[in-house]
């Protein structure tokens, strides 16, 4: 679905007069490949290059060096620009910055209308998209009266209405309360499992990635770890060094193991920990 080949991106810093002050390498020789239908998570501390990398996936940024392919199309090739942006949709952090319509259905219909989809079909798409994120009840509401999680789901519906193959979510839950976070993650998972849409989730919340197919960890513009959540979260100390963490239950299991309980690490869910401890008790 998405493939990068030695992707490099450099920001040029300029002073007030516009003279070049220096160059910052935000993405540094990243080779990454995402298969269709995968649920991918990207972790990394603030400033590690996650968002810059993600913006390459739907041609909001172009590589300084190297290549990015979306569904086989090179993003540098201007000819495919609109096709790429339709196939790979993007969701950002702040729900208030992404909603433009006065009414929910209008907002969701904006994408397909802009693509020139016939009116009849726009309404069909609006219908199915709102259902997919369980927001159909709010079809006629004003976005102003929705909670953060609901707004974020409307944004997701707006992307789905364009029938993308892939959705890139850049910290979609950072500004939400626990309930809003759950709603958005549930919607993302359903889209992945039911509709088969590829999801790339960027987040600072470790709990959100335990069900991902694969996790990439970034530091200084490079991918420094990759693997299943189980593989990545087994390296608690390495993650801490990278300014990250693990889910609280994984950390609890890690602490227990350090205190001498023979627990099989890593533990990713509550159920796993309870099972482990039960087995220990019965021995």
């Amino acid at each position: 679905m998405i493939r990068t080949d030695k992707l490099v991106f450099e920001y040029i810093r300029r002073d007030e007069e516009g003279n070049v002050e220096g160059i910052t390498r935000a993405v540094d020789e990243v080779d990454l490949s995402v298969e269709p239908g995968q649920f991918i998570a990207i972790l990394g501390h603030n400033g590690s290059g996650k968002s810059t990398l993600a913006k390459h996936f739907n041609a909001l940024l172009y590589p300084t060096e190297g290549e990015v392919y979306v569904d086989g199309m090179n993003t540098d090739d201007g000819e495919h620009l609109w096709e790429i942006r339709q196939e790979a949709g993007m969701i950002f952090q702040n729900p208030d910055n992404q909603i433009i319509g006065q009414v929910v259905e209008e907002d969701v219909g904006f994408g397909p209308e802009n693509m020139g989809v016939p009116t009849e079909e726009i309404w069909e798409r609006v219908d199915e998209s709102l259902k997919a994120v369980r927001m159909d009840k709010f079809r006629k509401s004003s976005p102003n009266h929705l909670s953060g999680g609901q707004k974020q789901r409307v944004s997701i519906a707006g992307v789905i209405a364009m029938h993308p193959k892939c959705i890139i979510m850049d910290e979609p839950t950072a500004m939400l309360d626990p309930n809003g976070r759950r709603e958005v993650i549930r919607a993302a998972r359903a889209l992945n499992q039911v509709e088969g849409i590829t999801i790339i989730l960027i987040t600072h919340y470790m709990e959100e990635v335990v069900d991902a197919d694969k996790v990439f960890v970034m530091d200084k513009g490079r991918i420094v770890m990759e693997g299943t959540p189980r593989e990545v979260f087994s390296r608690v100390d390495k993650l801490k060094e990278l300014r990250l963490g693990v889910p609280q239950v994984t950390l609890l299991a890690h602490e227990l193991a350090k205190s001498g309980l023979p627990i099989h690490e890593p533990v990713l869910t509550r159920a796993e920990l309870v099972k482990e401890l039960k087995a220990l008790k019965e021995r």
Partner: peptide
């Protein structure tokens, strides 16, 4: 701590 990474938080 909104928007900060785990260490920042």
């Amino acid at each position: 701590t909104a928007g900060l990474d785990p260490k920042g938080r």
